[in-house]
Amino acid sequence: MSLLKYIQIAKNTLQEYFTYRVNFFFWRLQVFFSFIIYYSLWFAVSSSQGGIASYTASSIYTYFVLGYLVRTLVFSTRTADIGGDIQNGNLSTLILKPLSPVKYYFARDTIDKLFNLIFMSFEFLLIIFLYKPQLIFPNPSSLLFFILLILFATISFFFYSLIISFITFWVDEAWSTRFLFGVVFVNLFSGQIIPLDLLPHWIQNILNFTPYPYFFFYPIKVWLNQLPISQYPSLLLSYLVLILVTYSISSFMWQKGKVKYQSYGQ
C-alpha cells in the first residue's frame, strides 16, 4: 500500500513529461549533441594515433559510447527541484502529507531515468549506426560487477545530489553551489570529459578520496575489463562506504534542515 503512492508520483511525473514533449525533445537533442561533440573529438584523436596512452581506439570508443548510457542511468535526476522547493516554500505541501519527501524525489528520479533511458536507447542505435564503433564487451563476471556498480553509483549519486540540494536550508540562494558541486565538479572529476587515468597520478590519487570517480569512471573501467578481479572487493567496499557516508550526511542535513525550514511565502 505504501508503495502505491510512490508509483502514483512516478505516473504523475511521467504525465508532466508528456505535457512538455517539445521541451523534452530539445533536452534530448542537447544531450545527444553534447555526446556527439565528445565522441567526435576522442574519435578524431584516437583513430589518428590508434589509441591514447593505455587506451586502444576500441576502448576509447567504448568508454564514451558506454558513458552515454552511464550518464543517463546515474546522472539524470530531479533532485535539482529540491533547492527551488525549499526556497519558494513549495516543500510545505510535501511536508504536510504522510509521505517521505526524500522518497518522493527518489520516485521522480527513478521515472526520470527510465524515461530518459527509453529515448537514449534510440539515440544509442543511431550512434552505432552513424559511427559503427568497434566496441569492447565485458566478460561475464565484469558484466555482473558493472551492473552492481551502476546500481551503487546511482544510489550514491542520489544521496550526493540530496546533500547539495539540502544546502538551501542554510543558504538562501544556492544555485551557484549546486552548479559548482553538481555540474562542474561532477563533469570534470567523474571522468565524463576525460578518462581519469589520463590525468597525472597525483590528481588521480586525490580524486580517489572524492566520490566523483565512483559515479562514472570505475563502472566503465570494469566494463572495459581494465580492473583486475582482485581489486573488486576493495572497490565494492569503497562503494559501500560512499553510500553510507552520503546517506548519513544527507539524512543528517534533512533532519536538521526540516527544523530550520521556514516555509517562505504564504
Binding site: 504523475n12 504525465q15 508532466e16 505535457t19 513549495n90 505541501t93
Partner: peptide, 8 residues
C-alpha cells in the same frame, strides 16, 4: 501556494 500539480 498550490498543492495541485501545475502541468496536469
Amino acid at each position: 501556494k498550490n498543492q495541485l500539480w501545475w502541468d496536469i
